[in-house]
Design a protein around this nucleic acid. Sequence first.
DNA 1: GTACATGCAAATTCTTTGCAACCCA
DNA 2: TGGGTTGCAAAGAATTTGCATGTAC
Lengths: 149, 149
Amino acid sequence: MPIKLEDIRTRLHAKDYKLTPQRQLIVKVFSENPNEHLSAEDVYGLVKEEHPEIGLATVYRTLDLLAQLDILRVMNFGDGRSRYELTDIDDHHHHHLICLQCGTVAEFNDDLLESLEAVVQKRNGFKVQNHQLKMYGICKECQSKENEK
Amino acid sequence: MPIKLEDIRTRLHAKDYKLTPQRQLIVKVFSENPNEHLSAEDVYGLVKEEHPEIGLATVYRTLDLLAQLDILRVMNFGDGRSRYELTDIDDHHHHHLICLQCGTVAEFNDDLLESLEAVVQKRNGFKVQNHQLKMYGICKECQSKENEK
DNA sequence: GTACATGCAAATTCTTTGCAACCCA
DNA sequence: TGGGTTGCAAAGAATTTGCATGTAC
């Protein structure tokens, strides 16, 4: 289910931030590109199509703000730039498979880690708020290509 | 158990790389700082104590090389710089707890993910080589500080 | 009206690269 | 000896910041 604009407006106003057209557009770009892992530059390019005068700095500032409000999640797949995606409701069960050959990032879901959070909480006294799991390896496509040789 | 220098020499020579004093020193720094998550700048500072004429570029090149040889593991905790640690034998069971308040990174071990790798392998046709799990939350120390208020 | 936002350009920070001198095997 | 390696300085890439102007509420 998509994030509602009014919900975002409310969350912004709660901290005296404003819902500007730029911010709306950036959220829209994420809604229209689900399952992508957009970088600041990616977002900049996409927003520019509709609103050419936007500045890259605004994109950076907005991504930062939306991540603080937990509307976006920041990620890092080792290519030297931050990547963002909408925080979905099922977030805790949503992980990433990163292909070491072609760099593609796929998603997978599993709730196995729920129980692990409880263990860590008890054993280390660490109050877990969130987690990220990445698995590195070779994707199905690259495996087939390898076999063709 | 510490990594043996001879082992590293062998792994380098296997690919026609040389074991230079700089490379030795960098490995030494990691051996002497277990459980740390050193950035390039950190390593540079530490190596400089013994070998002041080393260049930062050499540090970057060496970290990169050692990571390719799987002697070091690269990580990213969201502070804008890559961090490295020695790849240990128990690597697959070794994960990170990142405090959102003070930024401290602690370690914890668990082998729960072993079985998950097999599931992903079968379900997604993805050949897993490695994985990284990070849990974000509030560490024990910051929780106590919070309670004192 | 006013405090927050924006766009632009300059500044920072992290990392990479070119190249001549150097040195491990 | 010779091809990998180093240190230095310059280049590059991602991100941040200062500031005058603009705007949501």
